Simulated assay, not measured.
Amino acid sequence: MNVTVTSLDPALKERLESVSTATLTTIMLKKGIRRSWLRGPMPLFAASHRAVGRAFTLRFVPLREDLATPESWSSPRSTRAAIEEMPEGVIAVADAMGVRDAGIFGDILALRMKKRGVSALITDGVMRDAAGVESSRLPVWATGVAAPASVSSLTFVGWQEPIACGGAAIFPNDVIVADRDGAVVIPAALVDEVATLGVEQERLEGWIMGEVEAGHRLPGLYPPDSETKARYEAWKAAQQR
């Protein structure tokens, strides 16, 4: 499969950058999607800011000794070839099956992704060459680090096809949002609606935080009852004058 990456509207990206992954998982739960948060990947390198981008998927399978060799790194079906297909702004999402004893990418590949304008790398596996990856300034969410190369435990088989990463199903062109709480996948068809709901939820919760700071009790405030909702709507109307 060779799925063309659809560019993410800058205004939509900006809206999602204002919404936390915690808020997004709640919205997704209300939409009936329970597995939107990726188990395992957490901010590891240069991940101090929220990352938002279309998913560019990469897939590893278990070790096949005849295929997973250092010579395979020069193959047309290699991680090197996949990186050269990554458009600017995507988030690379790698299904490494949770394997933690082989780093899927090291410093040179991380630097190349950074130079190509890749927004971030998300994986349920691990990285290698930690010092060099950190120096590349590529934002990385992963489960840790390990010295061995990927071919010691994994076989790279392709890119831009459906994958499983951290227990979540991810399709090319889904949207990934990652912050200090981890990474969330939003199905491509739901992105605009989820962004709209997310921005409003963040505004409501910001107002609730102010109420808590002012000493209000939680019952009826969070979640808001009808009286609280009316006070919130009045506050919103006042802000728009």
Rank of each mutant, 00 (worst) to 15 (best):
G132T: 12
V212T: 04
S153E: 14
E205V: 09
W37I: 10
W207M: 04
P187C: 10
E84L: 01
S150H: 13
G53K: 10
T4E: 12
G117H: 10
D9W: 03
E17T: 10
A169L: 14
A11D: 13
V5F: 01
A46Q: 09
V52M: 08
A102C: 12
D9N: 14
Q239T: 02
A178T: 00
V126M: 09
G220V: 04
T21A: 07
S7Y: 03
V93E: 09
A178V: 01
V157M: 05
S150A: 15
G53D: 11
K13Q: 09
G98H: 02
D181V: 00
A130H: 00
P224R: 09
F56C: 08
D9E: 13
T79I: 15
L190E: 13
L190Y: 09
A188D: 14
A130L: 05
K30W: 14
P10L: 11
L121H: 04
E211V: 06
T196W: 04
M86T: 09
D124H: 04
Q239W: 06
E202H: 09
G166C: 02
L111R: 13
E88V: 13
G98P: 04
P43F: 00
L8T: 05
C165K: 07
A81D: 06
E213G: 07
L190F: 06
S48C: 01
L121Q: 05
D9F: 02
I104M: 05
R180Y: 07
K30A: 15
P223N: 12
D9V: 05
A92T: 06
E213L: 13
I186H: 06
H216K: 14
D174G: 05
E193A: 15
F56M: 13
I33G: 13
D129C: 08
A147K: 15
E193K: 08
T57M: 13
F156N: 12
G98R: 02
G220D: 13
R231Y: 11
D174M: 08
L121S: 04
G206R: 10
I163D: 10
V3T: 12
P43H: 00
S48W: 01
G89Y: 07
K236R: 15
E84H: 00
E14Q: 14
A131T: 14
G32W: 15
V175C: 14
W235S: 05
L121C: 02
V99D: 12
R100H: 13
I186Y: 08
V93R: 09
R50F: 01
W141I: 07
D124Q: 07
S48M: 03
S153T: 06
A178G: 02
A146G: 11
L197M: 15
L190T: 01
L138I: 01
G89H: 09
